[in-house]
Write a protein that binds this DNA or RNA. Structure first.
Lengths: 242, 242
DNA sequence: ATTTGACTCAATCAAGCGTTTGATTAGGGT
DNA sequence: ACCCTAATCAAACGCTTGATTGAGTCAAAT
């Protein structure tokens, strides 16, 4: 096993190691986000980083190990900042729009420029759509840790909402977040050039109130056999009304 | 017309051809959606379809041509049904929850089982997250056609909403749709086993009211220089940033 | 019955993939 | 001075990819 790289800082004697490691991580983050995980080859990454192919396997073991390192480097501080902002919400509870504050606490750390910015945001979106079980497990490993606390906080802010509805709407929040991160140029195609989509601040300004309003919708009545008539406009019968 | 049947359909005389073509399309749709476009190899597709590699290139020219054929086969009927349902909304305007009907008209045809079902829905989600410019252009080619009409209908249902806010929220709707289609098992991981996520009807029952409520949020005040204070809770950098 | 032509097949191609190897460099410890 | 070890390098590994080829198959038209 040659994977015994300098995990501890004490053992990282050679300063070249950390510099190369960081260059590989930066290039991989950029190319993964730009061309996808399968689309970015190790050769392209090492060419962009100006290092040798073997350096990747020396430091990270494999391409999957490199992806995990790229992901962990950003997601850990993001998760920490998420929980810190959530704690701030709890302290001053009762302030106006607690719901919006919780939503912002969940979205901001990952979408603002602090932790990798739009580049890492796009990578997360790609990973969310990725098929491989490894990638999915990797995301879940770091994600489930914080989601439970946010679900709990949202349940407090929305006491009338059954857990089932809360889970669905939390899922919808993830969808808007991921899609907005993945397609920073999509809005421009719709509006012409009304807004600057690469700037995530504008996205957040529109996204947070939209989500807060959606969360406050009435709970969905439990109709296991009968579905909401609005959704049943043109299903089986061409002319029938329900 | 007993002369020659091949005058109109130059290539589709041999009935074996259509059967093989359909088997390839079905297998490609399934494997593309399951493993991604890059992740599904032609060899895996032809093995699943029980045909030869050359058959793909004979019928579709290339892997990209196959993807376009898979996509077009489903998206054209979906777009037609979308517009048909939208026309139904227009006829009976003034009915309760016109907004929900418009949203349902946009979401239902693509998410219900009629046109490829969850399999094709997952493929669309993958394509939305895909990097390649070809895939992106392919989706835009069939998508921009119908989106304009839905934006117009939504503007009628929400006369107080500026176009900018409308475009953002339409974008958010796409996000929830794509993410829900892409992760049919994600809700189970959150709720335990409260809902059956592979059944898109349940998704729609929760998604449509959520989106309708979000669309009805107040417009975002135009603050090009000043950001919503709610979103600015903890942006101070404790240790500096890179 | 023969011919025709749409269609299939096994074999093969060059290119690119992730990974591994063995040699080489650089630098602090004894 | 020596050795040890972390770190890097060029080169090749075995394998899979999308694509191509030419011979062959088989139903239908003549």
């Amino acid at each position: 096993m040659t994977v015994v790289a300098a995990e501890n800082a004490d053992l990282a004697i050679d300063p070249r190691g950390e510099a190369t490691r960081t260059r590989i991580l930066d290039s991989a983050e950029y190319l993964f986000s730009e061309h996808g995980i399968n689309g970015a080859s190790l050769r392209a990454i090492v060419a962009h980083a100006g290092v040798n192919t073997a350096a990747v396997h020396y430091h990270f073991g494999s391409k999957q190990g490199l992806l995990e390192a790229v992901f962990a480097r950003r997601i850990i501080p993001i998760a920490e900042e998420r929980l810190a902002m959530l704690a701030e919400c709890r302290e001053g509870n009762g302030r106006p729009s607690l719901l919006q504050q919780i939503i912002a606490a969940f979205l901001e750390p990952g979408m603002r420029g602090s932790h990798g910015g739009a580049t890492f945001a796009r990578l997360r979106a790609r990973m969310a759509a990725d098929a491989s079980e490894e990638t999915r497990a990797l995301m879940a490993k770091y994600f489930d840790r914080s989601s439970a606390q946010f679900l709990e906080a949202l349940a407090v802010a929305l006491p009338h909402l059954p857990p089932r509805d809360l889970h669905w709407r939390f899922h919808f929040m993830l969808g808007t977040m991921v899609y907005t991160m993945a397609n920073p140029g999509r809005i421009q195609a719709l509006t012409g050039d009304a807004c600057d989509p690469s700037d995530m601040d504008a996205s957040l300004a529109y996204l947070v109130p939209f989500l807060a309003q959606g969360f406050q919708a009435d709970p969905i009545p439990d109709t296991t056999t009968d579905i909401n008539p609005v959704v049943m406009t043109a299903t089986s019968k061409p002319n029938g009304e329900s």
